[in-house]
Design a protein around this nucleic acid. Structure first.
Lengths: 128, 128, 128, 128
DNA sequence: GTGGTCTAGACCACG
DNA sequence: GTGGTCTAGACCACC
């Protein structure tokens, strides 16, 4: 699969999986209606506990990004069901930007990095 | 004081304090050499335990943002000692931007929000 | 376990634990990838509070000597991530040597003691 | 005076003063019977609180390195009264050496550094 | 099971 | 006054 986890990442494993799936959806690698790999397969590929992946999938469902159908696996939800409000999104953005400001990046550099990240997220289909 | 914590925030209290102090430094509200309020005062103002703030101050010291001396208080460290590398900063930025993309913000909208946040961070002196 | 704390030692308990773990790593008793005993077990063995050990483990993580993952335990980190610069190491060495000089040990005696300590540290595998 | 304190040093101020005086005695810059500068003068020179220096002098007296005579200031004590037993000296030595081992210094390098430090301590009269 | 966070409250060390 | 350390004990998050 195209997911990966990194032991040196500060985020817990299940969070890395959630963020990874979200990125894949944002990039269009995973499109509406497409099935996600089974919990069992992801756990095997990443070498982590089944439970960890199950928790991740469950939270993805709670947030409206996937629909888990009993026995039939998980599929990417309709786009209308996805996404959060601007309010909750601003806090992590501000925290991320604060880091760059403290590291003395200029506004131009920061905006350039933002555009670069957006370009990467936007390339429809991605590096499947 | 100018710090605040929010029980509904997913971040632990001590992390909220850390991020809050970093924002204040980034905005220039707290400048090099300025003393931070005492652990006791912050704890009292925010209504949290002394230890929680002490942990936050300790981590801020470990990250090089403040200098804490035992019987004296904590002061904002020299800027040269602060900041992180680009590597650790990109991951939270990407995660934050992914949220906006999933919420179907356009690139123009996102960049505008980024500029808005940067402008707020950059007004030296801030809303003291 | 092979750790111990001493109430008559001037160092705080958590520091004694940190230094003890570092010694075990230096001696090769704890090798890269090996799990450390759980916080609860160490706390029980040494008869100190859970939090005290948790603080020690956290600092060991911050210094790069161990990797602590939430629901999993703590494991000895890759050696490349460990170690400090010569600068920070000289000061405690000078202080230690000053003590011997003041106690009127000769240079030969001091160097012999140093070799003796190094020999003890170097016997890979140690007195497991 | 020949003492100095360093804000970036992790040791508390009073400990830096104590270690500094001990070094001066070890190096022979301060010899038996010689007067130490007054508490007031040291405090002024270093820009620290009077109390801090007074505490340092008192501990130096308790350890037998100086004799404080009321109203007459402090003088370096007779050498026979100074020094600690080998037992208490080994622990800091071991901790210091552990740091070098973890930073992957070879035994030869470490012994060379030890000899270098000893040479500096031994130059009688010092850089007065 | 693991470690993480937080509280309440005590006592010590430092300036 | 300041921050540092430690305890007891609770509850949560992660695997």
């Amino acid at each position: 699969m195209f997911l990966s986890v990194d032991a040196s990442d500060e985020r817990p494993l299940y969070k890395q999986v959630i963020d990874g799936v979200k990125e894949l959806i944002a990039r269009g690698v995973l499109r509406e209606g497409m099935p996600l790999p089974s919990v069992r397969q992801v756990a095997g590929d990443l070498g982590v506990n089944l439970n960890t992946i199950a928790v991740a999938y469950r939270e993805l469902q709670d947030e409206g990004f996937v629909n888990v159908r009993h026995g039939a696996g998980a599929v990417v939800a309709a786009r209308s069901a996805q996404g959060a409000g601007e309010g909750e999104l601003r806090k992590p953005l501000r925290t991320a930007l604060t880091g760059f400001v403290l590291a003395r990046f200029s506004d131009r550099e920061i905006v350039a990095l933002v555009r670069q990240e957006l370009e990467w997220l936007r390339q429809k289909g991605g590096t499947l």
